[in-house]
Design a protein around this nucleic acid. Sequence first.
DNA 1: GGTTGCATGTAAAACGTTACATGATTTT
DNA 2: AAAATCATGTAACGTTTTACATGCAACC
Lengths: 180, 180
Amino acid sequence: MELSPTAYVILGMLGWRPMSGYEVKSIVDKSTRFFWAASYGQIYPELRHLAAAGLIEGKASPQGGRKRNVYRLTPAGRKQLRAWLDTDPEVYELRDEALLKLLFADATGAEAAAATLEAKRRTHEQIVQRLKAIEATGKPEGFAYLVLRYGIEFNQWNAGWCERTRRALEDEAANQRRTA
Amino acid sequence: MELSPTAYVILGMLGWRPMSGYEVKSIVDKSTRFFWAASYGQIYPELRHLAAAGLIEGKASPQGGRKRNVYRLTPAGRKQLRAWLDTDPEVYELRDEALLKLLFADATGAEAAAATLEAKRRTHEQIVQRLKAIEATGKPEGFAYLVLRYGIEFNQWNAGWCERTRRALEDEAANQRRTA
DNA sequence: GGTTGCATGTAAAACGTTACATGATTTT
DNA sequence: AAAATCATGTAACGTTTTACATGCAACC
């Protein structure tokens, strides 16, 4: 039974406690979003798929007149989750348009490169702010906190690199003007 | 004319010098691979697409009896490349299965978490080694060198975080044993 | 003569986002 | 009364990988 990593996002969260697809999505947006995004277009079909495979069980739990399906792990699902956790991680992918623009910046020059660096710095800075806001509203327990700290420190490092590199470019440009 | 970022990988490389699809792929594997991968399944169709759009021009340049198509930027293609370089980067995506496993590690415990951290550390360490090997065989010029340095420092930071965190987990476990 | 590298391409499958559609409930 | 939030889902589209298919040339 080969599952996609996104299926394990669902399995992992249902391992914390039973929840609806809507809840899975809102927790994804507060936790995995910065290193593993997932949309409704993936979550709802995947819930059905996992239920059909017997790894989770759905139960209609309407809140008033508002329909709602709460899913929970089956013993088979928990076993599958543990087996996945016990194997080495495989997927590691990065897509960073800013680095692409930096790589080709010879075609436009140092000013465009500085603008790209500044935009990338802002992106990382914004993520730091959002993650710190999450940390402030009640820090998560256990390993979730470790991952949150990673997110903050990782993005701070990135923002710092952009800042240092932009300054180095500016100093270089200033030196060239002085020497010329 | 909306192009995918992968199309700009091609445009950017043809901005350096004319080359074949095969060459584009081999340079991708030596440069953008760690932040923007591209396969033959994308490159060859995209070359045709860009040629049809008048942004690049292909010319049959066989080497002996071996067929070969070399492409170069048209003035319209260079204009398009510069316009893209002058706009702020948008795509920034990360997919890291290791962080996912770490997030859910409560279900298995500290040992599995340590193994995940160690696997992630190895991944980053290997990338550092490959990038350093590229640096040793003739460092690239201009902005390409900046991007290479980013790759090395970024992966070193990541490997370091994994190492520090794994040690912190071990110390914590040791303290608990002592207190218990 | 075999392996590696150069060279081009396609087809199917997997993966993922976006936009759309619908409707109830809670908060302002 | 309007806006935000809860809640579920689908369809179309775009992107990307993987596997397959082919063949020449250079080196060992």
